[in-house]
């Protein structure tokens, strides 16, 4: 998936870190939007190890839970409800902080 470019003006890009890789995002986007625009569709694994990703994109299905580094440790958040911020650190699987 990619961003619509024609006729759209976006703020200058910022950077979020996903599983160690730096990806660009624009303020105002959700984390889910930035991830799929970078072709990261695997947002978590279920307990059998199968990949799960964005389904409803409105906070209902809980399929897009990722780990976000916060002051007090990793927190689960729905990527589709989380606005991007410069320097945000994301993991799609549980790793030591």
């Amino acid at each position: 998936m990619s961003r619509i470019v024609d006729g759209v003006t976006r703020p200058a890009p910022i950077t979020v870190e996903i599983d160690g890789a730096m990806i660009p995002a624009h303020p105002g986007e959700t984390l889910a939007a930035a991830m799929v625009a970078t072709e990261i569709y695997r947002m978590r694994d279920d307990r059998s190890g199968a990949p799960r990703g964005l389904l409803c994109n409105m906070g209902t299905c809980s399929e897009c839970f990722v780990w976000i580094a916060m002051e007090d440790g990793w927190r689960r958040r729905r990527a589709c409800l989380t606005p991007v911020e410069d320097g945000l650190r994301i993991a799609t699987h549980e790793v030591p902080l």
Binding site: S62, F65, D72, G73, R75, R76, R77
Partner: peptide, 8 residues
């Protein structure tokens, strides 16, 4: 529990 996230 303060370190956990509410999922639903």
């Amino acid at each position: 529990l303060r370190g956990r996230s509410l999922i639903r």
